[in-house]
Amino acid sequence: MKPLSAIVFKDIVIELRNKETISSMLMFGLLVLVVFNFAFQPTGAERALIAPGILWVAFTFAGILGLNRSLSIELDNDCLQGLLLAPLDRGSLYLGKVASNFIFMMIAEVMILPIFVLFYNLRFDLQFLQIAGLSFLGTFAFAAVGTILSTISANTRMKEVMLPILLIPLTLPVILASVMATSAVLSGETEGISSWLYLLGGFSIVYLVASYLVFEFVVEE
């Protein structure tokens, strides 16, 4: 537990110093909200229909930005090697990075969410909290896969470009489940929502365990 919290704490201290990751994620998320508004020019009822999709596109792309940024900190000066030299197993290292990626994404999303509610004329009530809860689950699943895939993509010659190519096909169930659950919350028809929540939970657990086991192969030279 101690090395895990050390990694998270270290990432937070770095972020407090340079403020680069969250600000760029936030800006990017905002731009997605704005661009999609222009692209679709939704009015009234339509807006509530397409809003969940737009929100998760914003979260997904902001998340990819955050994942790339988080890894580039470790690649700078070969810091990842320094972590690999430390007496913690590779699985714990993976969990540490998942934790810090998750926290960063959550912070950015918590800031994007109110703006989203405002832009799309939604309400700040129970719905808002429900969507925040959903984001929590969806983001965790996203961070679990994203952390290992960003480490894989860091080994390629294309680095940052490779991440979305690897990540989006694999996280489609997460995006789909999050969008559908968000729509259910927004439309108030929440009876079918539990299967989506189970899917997000199951996905997170399965990928967390699998990645924990194979992370060693990704980082060893």
Partner: peptide, 28 residues
């Protein structure tokens, strides 16, 4: 070989999740 193997394994795990998510999505 090694990283492709890891990605292959992660992809294989994804198949049932994709299957169910898309099935449920289609029914709606």
């Amino acid at each position: 070989a090694k990283l492709a193997a890891v990605f292959g394994v992660l992809g294989m795990i994804d198949v049932p999740f994709n299957y169910y998510s898309i099935e449920w999505w289609a029914t709606q």
